[in-house]
């Protein structure tokens, strides 16, 4: 029970390594071309963004429209650091600084706004993300509307995959912890959670801070992969894109977010050859899924629930 090396965990570790090696091999034999690699990067970054937003919106029930704002903080912080210290060490320091900067801003924004509920919170977070964007637009160090270009590229498959796995494992463990349970209870019924003695403000801010942390990492990976960032990359539409993945996959399902991120990236890549009707098809896919699966692809279930190793309820009983 106490050992981490259970059969289940070893199996998961095996799958994680296998996926990594498989993609690596496919890349070196040229089956995954550099064109495909862009899709791969988009998928990885979107998974980190969607899973972290899912913690805030899907699990804790706090409707946030500002995720791209935290992503942009990560992107700029990492870009500025890695442009000055052009090395892998600089890149890693950049990612760490990006995550921390996003977390700090997340806490500062979270404390006043998380008193609000539902639509009001959505509007407030939207406003905050816009403020972040406008600040980057007007700062000298971020080069205003022109943005930063020539950011050294250190993000590769290895780093992206590593951070995707870290994000999923850490957020998953958080949700299964008693803190995570407290967050879910806030989504389920805030008044009941409060009367159980759960400090709802604390856990809302905590979820928000963790979500911002990983959004910062995603931004950092983005900056160092695409060479170029500008404030408008991280506008309102980017936040909506992330939210779409979360809603589509299922609010409260980590594997749902992963599947949706992969699916949407594939659909969008596939439709690239039909430029004229691309957005129409993309929107149609969304509408159709929402009509037939309004709770999202997986609802609040995880794909792993299909083949459960051990019923979680048997812990105490």
């Amino acid at each position: 029970m106490t050992s981490v090396l259970t059969k289940k965990n070893l199996l998961i570790l095996g799958c994680i390594l296998l996926t990594f090696v498989l993609v690596q091999v496919l890349m070196s034999v040229g089956f995954i071309t550099s064109f495909h690699e862009i899709t791969l990067a988009t998928i990885c970054i979107n998974i980190i963004l969607a899973v972290s937003l899912n913690l805030v919106t899907g699990f804790t029930g706090q409707f946030s429209l500002g995720h791209a704002g935290f992503m942009s903080i990560g992107a700029y912080v990492c870009a500025l650091i890695v442009m000055r210290f052009d090395s892998v060490a600089g890149f890693l320091v950049g990612i760490l600084a990006a995550a921390l900067a996003a977390t700090i801003v997340g806490i500062l924004i979270g404390i006043p706004t998380l008193r609000l509920k539902g639509d009001y919170l959505a509007i407030a977070t939207l406003g905050m993300a816009e403020i972040i964007r406008v600040v980057f637009l007007n700062l000298e160090i971020t080069n205003g509307a022109a943005g930063l270009s020539g950011i050294p590229r250190y993000t590769n498959w290895f780093w992206m995959y590593l951070f995707v796995v870290l994000t999923i494992v850490l957020i998953n463990n958080f949700i299964r912890s008693s803190h995570g349970r407290a967050c879910i209870s806030i989504r389920e019924d805030e008044i009941a959670a409060e009367s159980m003695g759960i400090n709802t403000t604390k856990f809302k801010v905590m979820a928000f801070a963790i979500g911002s942390f990983f959004a910062g990492i995603a931004g950092a990976l983005y900056a160092s992969y695409f060479y170029f960032i500008k404030p408008n990359t991280f506008g309102f539409l980017k936040s909506i894109d992330i939210l779409v993945i979360v809603v589509l996959g299922g609010m409260g399902s980590i594997t749902g977010s992963i599947i949706a991120a992969v699916l949407l990236a594939l659909v969008s890549t596939f439709l690239q050859s039909f430029t004229a009707v691309r957005m129409i098809f993309y929107a149609l896919v969304l509408v159709i899924i929402m009509i037939f699966r309004p709770q999202g692809l997986l609802g609040t279930k995880e794909i792993t629930d299909l083949f459960k190793f051990r019923r979680k309820n048997e812990r105490i009983e």
């Binding site: 389920e188 019924d189 009983e317």
Partner: peptide, 11 residues
């Protein structure tokens, strides 16, 4: 009756 509807009775 403010239960946590998506959680099990045990949870």
């Amino acid at each position: 009756r403010r239960i946590f509807p998506e959680m099990t009775v045990f949870e």
